[in-house]
Design a protein around this nucleic acid. Structure first.
Length: 441
RNA sequence: GUGAAUGUAGCUCAAUGGCAGAGCACUGGACUGUGGAUCCAGCUGUUGUGGGUUCGAGUCCCAUCAUUCACCCCA
């Protein structure tokens, strides 16, 4: 009886075809991240549980995978890439500031999986530690914008809000710290349950109707960034913190324009909240309109988090792209520019018989020397099966070297997709394949 | 953590409480050096698991496990 070939709920195998797409996506992201001067970083998958605990909020804390090792140490699997970054700054306080890094790595959350949600998934984070400038906030938003554009995304919107504006409201209403999260959550549901739904939820939070009216009034401010900010400035005029939040967003928006981020891809949205506790300033979240898969990108400023590990206040801001959601959307939309390679192999050299295998191997070596990914057929199958293998795997070119070709100094190259087959001089094999190779490179 | 739906061949799915089937895939052949098309033949099962009702259960009931979807929360 074989062992059950089962994988854990919410986890997945990435078969080659999908893995090729994932690598394409992460490759593009890496290019964009480095283009803005962010440096690569990696951290352990496991951390001391205390490092992770108490950073995300009560709800999120419950979703941290934890276990005890043989020495009785309490271990946690990383829940995101932001807290480990804060820990890195504490571990290596001498890093030059601002410290700009990116990290593309898996994180784990003990949630119940559903569409677009997994227990093991990859995040692609870009963060700047040690800069309080709004330019740092705008820059990470711009990085995400560039990355999505370069992947072929067009219809997406980055919502921008400020925890300071939200806090101003909480303060004005007189919410206690344990009431605030519930109110935030109700606000955040606007898209999902509509204005009346939010009204009900707020009532359940214990707010009286004048307060609810004021909140709903704020939530319904819509329009261009400038218009929204101007209105919020008026409506939040009685709060110093609120005014500061508006000023900051004003700066972020100005920088975004200078950076060339299209007006159609961002908006100020007072109803966007984000769940994690550690955010302190501007917050961002990017949603794709067409397939409703939730947000593909989120982040914000967290000026208090790094200080927990360093004893000195350290401002920081960053953004995180969700790899699986991006890949899911790419697959669903079939966006142009995404290569449709099913295999990394470009050429298959067939083997006619034991007598000719040497010729096949020599040809394969020549192709590889020219950086053309080349397989030699492993087996003694008849030619039909060898072509069948190439066809099933989607290998673009098959090289046929039988006794006839070898005797006359020729080679047959067959394009499996187009059925075209040409006989060429054996000596020109590499150049011929190389000339076709350009297309896919 | 809460709720709902679904578990039958490698995959997708059929079968009124009455002999477990089809398509795809796979293997061989038609085709001794040409795949993907067509035709022929073949292979494929503890109906998720454990109980119960019944003359008889894939089908009804209970439990359990798994998967999916939704809620909470989130990438």
């Amino acid at each position: 009886m074989a062992v059950q070939a089962q994988i854990l709920k919410g986890t997945r195998d990435f078969l080659p075809e999908r893995m090729i797409l994932r690598q394409y996506v992460t490759g593009k992201l890496r290019d964009v991240f480095e283009n803005f001067g962010f440096e690569p970083l990696d951290t352990p998958a496991i951390e001391y549980a205390e490092v992770l605990e108490g950073k995300y909020g009560d709800e999120a804390d419950k979703l941290i995978y934890k276990f005890e090792d043989r020495g009785g140490r309490r271990i946690g699997l990383r829940y995101d890439l932001t807290v480990p970054l804060a820990r890195v700054i504490g571990t290596h306080p001498d890093l030059a500031r601002p410290f700009k890094r990116y990290q593309i790595a898996p994180v784990w959350r003990a949630e119940k999986p559903q569409k677009g949600r997994y227990r093991e998934f990859w995040q692609c984070d870009v963060d700047t530690v040690g800069s309080a400038s709004s330019l740092a906030d705008a820059e990470v938003v711009c990085v995400a914008y560039d990355a999505l554009r370069r992947l072929g995304f067009r219809h997406f919107k980055t919502k921008i809000n400020s925890r300071k504006m939200l806090a101003a409201i909480a303060e004005y209403i007189g919410l206690s710290p344990d009431q605030a999260p519930a109110v935030y959550r109700a606000i955040d549901k606007l898209d999902k349950i509509g204005i009346d739904g939010v009204k009900e939820e707020l009532a359940e939070c214990g707010l009286n109707s004048p307060l609810i009216s004021r909140l709903l009034d704020l939530l319904q401010v819509r329009g261009d960034a400038d218009v929204v900010l101007a209105q919020l400035r008026t409506k939040l005029a009685d709060s110093a913190m609120g005014a500061q939040g508006v000023d900051e967003l004003d700066e972020v928006v100005r920088y975004l324009r200078w950076l060339g981020v299209s007006e159609s891809n961002f908006e100020v949205d007072f109803s966007m909240v984000r769940g994690l506790d550690y955010y302190t300033g501007p917050i961002f979240e990017t949603v794709v309109e067409e397939p409703k898969i939730g947000s593909i990108c989120g982040g914000g400023r967290y000026d208090g988090l790094v200080g927990l590990f360093t004893n000195r206040p350290t401002p920081a801001t960053g953004i995180s792209l969700g790899l699986e959601r991006i890949v899911d959307v790419l697959e669903e939309l079939h966006l142009g520019g995404v290569p449709e390679m099913k295999t990394v192999t470009y050429a298959l050299v067939t083997v006619f018989s034991q007598d000719t295998v040497g010729e096949s191997l020599r040809a394969a070596s020549e192709l590889r020397a020219a950086d053309i990914h080349t397989e030699v057929f492993l087996g003694k199958d008849k030619l039909g099966n060898q072509l069948r293998y190439a066809s099933r795997k989607g290998i673009p070119f098959t090289i046929i070297l039988g006794p006839d070709e070898i005797a006359t100094g020729k080679a047959i190259v067959k394009n499996i997709a187009t059925e075209e087959q040409v006989t060429i001089e054996r000596a020109e094999l590499v150049d011929w394949v190389l000339s076709k190779h350009e297309v896919l490179k």
